[in-house]
């Protein structure tokens, strides 16, 4: 009989840790908020979490491919300010659709710029996307210097309260992302992605188009950031150039909690999405636990650090015992 091994299990199911953490967070959340599983509560929670879930999925693809994208928050902000200023509170559905399309294009372009720098000019991903993050955040401020603007209430209503077949909209979005990822993972592109993130030189020698793959991960991340920006705009109904800035680090945290290694080539996308949901519930717990707002950041950070350290601590204890 093989002995139970946490390492072995997490290697096989990278999302396991995120799942464990999610169950824990849900449990505590449930104690604090007994109506947690009521449909309306679930719906309101999921629609708040969804922007980060989408963002984490994109971030996970870049990280799997051996890179990192610090600029996603900036892209979210640009998309938010474009929608809030161009569509406006009185905008027509047609205008909304038109600018949703433009937003996606902007996301792809922003991602392509990152990808060009990193893949073709061989610049350091962390520095490059850190620099472009200011570029994008600056653009967002240029478009909308002060919070304001908005989108038609019909659009935000659609996002906030449509429950097709009794399930919140967010579930469908998550299901679609998971389905698309499952497909991508099973194609040759999926193998290429993991090989480039695992060991780029070896992938190159095996005739994998390394540069193209790296480039594509940033485009995917940019596109997902645009989707995330659209979601958060529909959620808030208004514009704010600062809206995305806090989301970058959260997206990376979600990826790490989700069992996807920052070194690349290990993990998946489902784990990071679970990680993003977990982060959302942590936020919930903190708001329900009546913690003073100035303690909030500290409390949240402590929980995240503890959560991240747990697998390592478990291993350390096991080693000591052996």
């Amino acid at each position: 009989m093989k002995r139970f091994s946490w390492n072995g299990l997490t290697a096989r199911y990278p999302a396991l840790f995120a799942l464990t953490l999610l169950v824990l967070a849900l449990g505590i959340n449930f104690l604090l908020q007994p109506n947690l599983f009521a449909r309306d509560t679930l719906n309101s929670n999921m629609r708040v979490f969804l922007p980060l879930v989408i963002l984490a999925a994109g971030q996970a693809v870049v990280i799997l491919g051996g890179g990192i994208d610090i600029s996603v928050g900036g892209i979210v902000s640009i998309v938010n300010t474009i929608l809030a200023t161009r569509v406006g509170l009185e905008g027509s559905p047609a205008a909304m659709w038109q600018y949703v399309g433009i937003s996606l294009l902007v996301g792809i372009l922003a991602g392509a710029l990152n990808g060009f720098f990193v893949a073709y000019l061989r610049l350091q991903p962390i520095i490059t996307t850190y620099a472009t993050s200011f570029l994008y955040a600056g653009l967002a401020l240029f478009i909308l210097p002060n919070p304001g603007g908005g989108i038609p209430t019909t659009a935000s209503e659609l996002y906030r309260s449509s429950v097709p077949l009794g399930l919140p909209l967010a579930f469908y979005v998550i299901a679609i992302i998971l389905f698309v990822w499952g497909y991508i993972r099973s194609t040759r592109y999926g193998n290429f992605l993991f090989s480039v993130g695992g060991k780029a030189q070896a992938a190159y020698e095996t005739a994998v188009p390394v540069t193209t793959i790296q480039f594509s991960t940033y485009v995917i991340s940019g596109l997902m950031a645009a989707f995330s920006g659209i979601a958060i705009t529909m959620l808030s109904g208004s514009g704010n150039a600062e809206i995305g800035s806090a989301m970058t680090l959260n997206s990376i945290t979600a990826v790490v909690i989700g069992g996807t290694a920052l070194s690349g080539g290990i993990g998946g996308v489902a784990g990071p999405m679970l990680g993003a949901i977990t982060l959302g519930f942590l936020q919930n717990i903190i708001s329900f636990a009546d913690i003073d707002t100035w303690w909030e950041t500290l409390a949240k950070a402590s929980i995240i650090v503890a959560a991240l350290a747990t697998p390592g601590l478990i291993n350390l204890i096991r080693r000591r015992r052996a």
């Binding site: 193998n191 993991f194 090989s195 095996t206 994998v208 080539g265 290990i266």
Partner: peptide, 20 residues
């Protein structure tokens, strides 16, 4: 060696020539 450590033996061998 041109192998990707994080991938399986089979995935490594057929990388870029996977039957689809």
């Amino acid at each position: 060696l041109s192998l990707i450590p994080q991938m399986s033996v089979a995935d490594n061998i057929w990388l870029t020539r996977e039957p689809l």
